[in-house]
Amino acid sequence: MLQLMKYEFRKQMFSKIIILAILGLMEVVFLGAVLLKKEEVMAISVLGLYVLACMAAFYVSIEAIITFSNDLKTKQSYMLFLTPKSAYQIMGAKVLGAIIQVFLTAALFLALGFADVFFLAARYSKVSEIIDAAKEILSGLSGLDITLPMILMTLFLIFICWISTIIFAMLSITLSTTVLENRKSKWIISFLSFILINVVVYKTMSLVGDQVTAGFYISSLVSAGISAVFIALASIGTSWMLEKKVSL
């Protein structure tokens, strides 16, 4: 499976190089602006870094889905499905590849974000006051005492949600390919089944969530657990269809 993952990364490497290059450039501009105390440039570069983080997060997910779609739609699918690997291994490599890429992207932007904030706080004493004020406002609004573990748990939930979106999209694409093979209208089935799967997951989570009256951490872990079960089911279902039903 490692060989399969190697080529998954290789197929999607170009976009990551572009993202890293833009990120590097923006960081240089930001750090230069902080050192030289050029507030206007600083503000623009912070905005730029924020937009880049959002776009990178979105694109990494979308690219995993596009690559999967192309692996079923184009003749390049033969590269994968002629190899002596089972559909479960192929899907496993894709799921793990997506998880690793999403994790690395999120970790990189978060680490840089934290580092930039601390750098800014060290340079401008007022920034630490703003951070403390922001914490107080958030605590007031949510009624919770915002702590680092709480932030990390929230980020973990976002990460799980992100992964489930990718896997559910892969399941929807496989489902439509199984039913309609490569007909042009298959995207409609993909889209509708994607919506349906998400509704089912959301309803299940709401039903279970209503039963759980424990605190933030327990209910978060329950949500993450339910998502993980759906991710596993979607991955197995996708692999089964690829193994038994899909013709390329």
């Binding site: 197929k11 002629l82 002596p84």
Partner: peptide
């Protein structure tokens, strides 16, 4: 037909299928 046969069977399709990169 499955993993075992894919180890022993080589198939060349009509269309090109290698990755663009």
């Amino acid at each position: 037909i499955g993993i075992e046969s894919k180890r022993k069977v080589a198939y060349m399709s009509t269309e090109p299928f290698y990755y663009n990169y």
